[in-house]
């Protein structure tokens, strides 16, 4: 593999508990190339979401290093991590996390506006491709779960990130809807050239990724 886009080395993380710290990640190491897709699987509590959060700059590590291109993510301060999330890494949440008071159009463009690289034409394309063109003036509460997740994917891709992180993106959707949403996500991710790291329990979804990484008790199995 050429120079990886994402490089994770010996990542450590533990959470405090009443009877001492509980290790969640114990020396996780892996790489991800630009444009590549990777499924991160493992049993509940294996550290998948924690790994995703640290890679996305949502949480900090106790030890080890995460690099995105030339940027040492684990060395960034709060402001630096915020800038990273704004423009280079984008997360698709299981709970969608749309802004309920903004309509679909505004939600779709929101992160791109935040990053200062709003491209109306690209947003229109995304809306059309995601089947949202007829729903732009609706509010999230007026959409089905599948539609909301498509808005979340659109918002993520509107900013044209280098890395898309997806945390159980179909966890709140039925099988058929989930499958359609994944098709769209993979298609659009491929078009933007972004890498995708997807946390999932679903073997069906994992099988759609180019690579698969299994975590067990905080280690790569």
């Amino acid at each position: 593999m050429s120079t990886p886009l994402l490089s994770v080395r010996d990542l450590q993380k533990s959470f405090p508990a009443a009877d001492g710290p509980v290790p969640v990640l114990q020396g996780v190491t892996f790489d991800l190339a630009a444009g590549q897709t990777l499924a991160l699987t493992g049993e509940s509590g294996s550290g998948k979401s924690t790994l995703l959060h640290i890679v996305g700059g949502l949480d900090t590590a106790d030890g080890g290093a995460v690099r995105l291109g030339e940027t040492e993510v684990t060395a960034l301060d709060d402001r630096g991590r915020a800038a990273l999330r704004r423009s280079r890494v984008s997360v698709v949440f299981q709970q969608f996390n749309l802004i309920p008071s903004l309509d679909v159009g505004a939600n779709l463009a929101f992160q791109a506006r935040l990053a200062g690289r709003h491209d109306p034409a690209w947003c229109d394309t995304l809306a059309r491709r995601l089947g949202l063109a007829g729903h732009l003036s609706k509010y999230p509460e007026q959409l089905s779960g599948g539609q909301q997740q498509r808005v979340a994917i659109g918002r993520t891709l509107a900013v044209r990130p280098e890395l898309v992180l997806a945390d159980e993106p179909t966890g709140n959707l039925d099988e058929e809807t989930g499958s359609r949403v994944v098709d769209l996500m993979l298609e659009l991710v491929a078009e933007t050239g972004a890498a995708l790291l997807c946390v999932t329990h679903s073997t069906a979804l994992a099988s759609r990724m180019e690579r698969r990484l299994v975590l067990s008790r905080g280690r790569v199995a």
Binding site: L58, R79, R86, N97, L98, I99, F110, Q111, L114
Partner: peptide, 15 residues
């Protein structure tokens, strides 16, 4: 709260 969290997750600095 959810909006604040989302905004922060999307890269808005706390300050």
């Amino acid at each position: 709260r959810g909006v604040f969290r989302t905004l922060r997750a999307l890269g808005l600095p706390r300050g």
